[in-house]
Design a binder for these strands. Structure first.
Length: 585
DNA sequence: GCCGTTTTCGGCCCGACTGTTTTCAGTCG
């Protein structure tokens, strides 16, 4: 039971309570949803916290007595009695109805109560038969909308990877920029927070009065369907399935809107809650001070106090500006309050790349070409780390070819000034935890990256043992693939992260954060855990061609999401320090 | 169900859009 599984149970409890719709449940629903948000985004697993000390769970803000007990119950038994009871009273299919856009708890309840609908299929059937239009607050249009949404749900492929969403959003932004009267245009939402997957794209625009922003937006040729179109807001679906929201704003409220639409939801709720306690109200239009109603009036007045820039908004609620990547309500607000925000790593801090392939194994460019591109990026060094022989499909190197490459690199290094190619390898960690190349050859290299390429279906314990054994050889500097996660394709292979990191610390091993936009080996929560446990991280690209080196920006933003600072990352250091840390000099 | 610079009870984030209504309920972000 990982955090996501626990979060899912609480999310379902919230849904079920909401559909049940008893008045006194409304705020319980919020509590469960809030708990799901917090647990889902929590940097450490509930399991390892509970193992250390169950009482610690109660210290987490948003988790009280009841939810604390339920977490312990779920960890112990794998399920939650309260959840099961709710499920018994409500056919599980009714929950599915919430996945249909336009159907929320109230409609789901109505559909179930009045028509006995308890699955998406039944909903579709009833809509086709024209049975929905007779229900309260529903008509023909609702019926149509639901049918459309059901089709949409059937064809929807889920969230988009960040890199893909960027490739769709950038041309659209360029298109909108050409609208006469546009002043400023900025993507917000999870795109701005650099989440590794994106549900939809939010674009904010400020413009002169009456600029035809929305009118031009809905004419974008890539649009499949306009879902909503108002004066200041419009929602569409693109042909590729991506949903895009555009909001047009006054300059005066641009900062407030940027803050609001950047999210995350959990962060915003916390910010608004905080503001309220200070007698302020935060909306996308600004920060307002509420004045009490004068004698004889029902309603007080509001005074606009901030909103032009994000800095102003945060300042108004007594906080330092918080980088978008941190806005998940996982401690950043408290840190901003105390002035303890991390000084996040920047792209320009990176001095080299420690995981690069050439055409000697499965890359496409030569040693010289890769080095030249790295120099162009103002790097001081790169490490050439080919696959080893066990990875036959990638033309992995055996001992003999490694020795030959060492000679090649020595030769090229002699011709280079102010730049050095490090001799390395991405050695395969075999199923039993042994390494794929002989010790004496590995010892001759500057850097050894260990990686798993086979038998991903091991149990968590077996996989953790395998990695720890490899670390214990004392020959591995950097461990790649500690989660093996491919965004949207494969969930992480199971590793006991706390144990892994303890072992990394013990053996002086560094964890690799792979910058492939869809192959995040270290995700943000692992980064944060690594930071908390004092384990160093290397942000690498695993480049197979020279342009892959540009992917470093995805790694940087993942690292920022994981609160990493310059000092936490190996390859922000100059070459001499790196070699010292790798204990090769 | 959670929380506390409104502290153990009484609050709990805010606004736009749609479709149904004729002043509003539901959904979404």
């Amino acid at each position: 039971m990982e955090n996501v599984d626990i979060a899912k149970i609480f999310e379902e409890i919230a849904d079920l309570l909401e559909i049940r719709g008893e008045k006194q449940d409304a705020f319980r629903v919020r509590s469960y949803r809030n708990a799901a948000l917090i647990i889902g985004g929590f940097p450490e697993s509930m399991r390892s916290i509970a193992e250390r000390d169950e009482k610690e769970l109660e210290n987490i803000k948003g988790i009280g007595k009841s939810i604390h007990e339920k977490i312990v119950e779920i960890l112990k038994t794998g399920k939650c009695k309260f959840h099961e009871e709710l499920l018994k009273a409500m056919p599980p299919g009714v929950l599915e109805l919430l996945m249909v856009s336009g159907v929320g708890p109230k409609k789901a309840q109505l559909l179930y109560k009045e028509l006995g609908i308890k699955s998406v299929e039944e909903l579709e059937k009833a809509a086709k038969e024209g049975k929905l239009r007779n229900l309260e607050h529903m008509g023909e249009k609702t019926e149509e909308k639901i049918l459309k949404a059901v089709n949409e749900l059937k064809s929807r492929s889920g969230r988009f990877r960040l890199s893909l969403a960027l490739s769709y959003a950038e041309p659209l932004i360029a298109y909108l920029k050409k609208t006469p009267g546009v002043i400023e245009i900025e993507p917000a939402g999870s795109l701005r927070r650099w989440k590794d997957t994106i549900g939809d794209v939010d674009i904010l625009v400020t413009s002169k009065k009456d600029a035809p922003v929305i009118d031009r937006f809905v004419k974008y040729p890539e649009i499949k369907e306009v879902i909503a179109k108002g004066e200041t807001k419009s929602t569409v679906t693109l042909k590729n399935g991506l949903q895009v929201d555009v909001r047009v704003l006054d300059e005066k409220s641009f900062g407030a809107a940027l803050q609001y639409f950047t999210g995350s939801k959990a962060h915003n709720i916390a910010i608004r809650d905080r503001a309220k306690k200070m007698g302020l109200k935060v909306s996308e239009y600004g920060v307002f001070r509420e004045k009490p109603a004068p004698e004889g009036f029902n309603q007080g007045t509001e005074k606009w106090v901030a909103g032009r820039t994000e800095e102003d908004v945060y300042k108004a609620v007594g906080l330092k500006w918080i980088p978008p990547e941190l806005r998940e309500n996982t401690g950043e607000i408290e840190a901003a309050e105390k002035g303890n925000l991390p000084n996040l790593i920047e792209l320009t801090d990176i001095k080299g790349d420690l995981h690069v392939h050439t055409n000697e194994s499965d890359g496409i460019h030569t040693l010289e070409e890769m080095a030249a591109y790295a120099m162009q990026k103002n790097y001081e060094y790169i490490a050439i780390t080919e696959h080893s022989k066990a990875v036959g499909i990638a033309r992995g190197l055996d001992e003999e070819r490694v020795l030959k490459q060492i000679k090649d690199i020595d030769r090229i290094n002699k011709q280079l000034k102010g730049f050095r190619i490090l001799k390395g390898i991405e050695v395969d960690i075999k199923a039993d935890g042994s390494l794929d190349l002989k010790d004496d050859v590995l010892k001759r290299l500057d850097v050894v990256v260990g990686a798993v390429h086979s038998k991903f279906n091991m149990t968590q314990e077996e996989m953790t043992e395998r990695l720890i054994k490899a670390m214990a050889t004392g020959l591995v500097n950097i461990i790649a693939h500690p989660t093996g996660r491919i965004v949207g394709v494969r969930e992480p292979y199971p590793v006991d992260s706390a144990r892994l990191m303890n072992a990394a610390k013990e053996h002086g091993v560094i964890l690799e954060l792979n910058s492939y936009p869809d192959r995040l080996d270290l995700n943000d929560s692992y980064c944060r855990l690594a930071k908390d446990m004092g384990v160093m991280v290397a942000i690498s690209t695993d480049s197979h061609n020279r342009l892959h080196m540009d992917n470093i920006r995805f790694g940087i933003h993942t690292a920022r999401r994981g609160w990493l600072e310059k000092k936490d990352v190996l390859n922000t250091r100059p070459l001499t320090e790196v070699l010292k840390i790798l204990k090769r000099q």
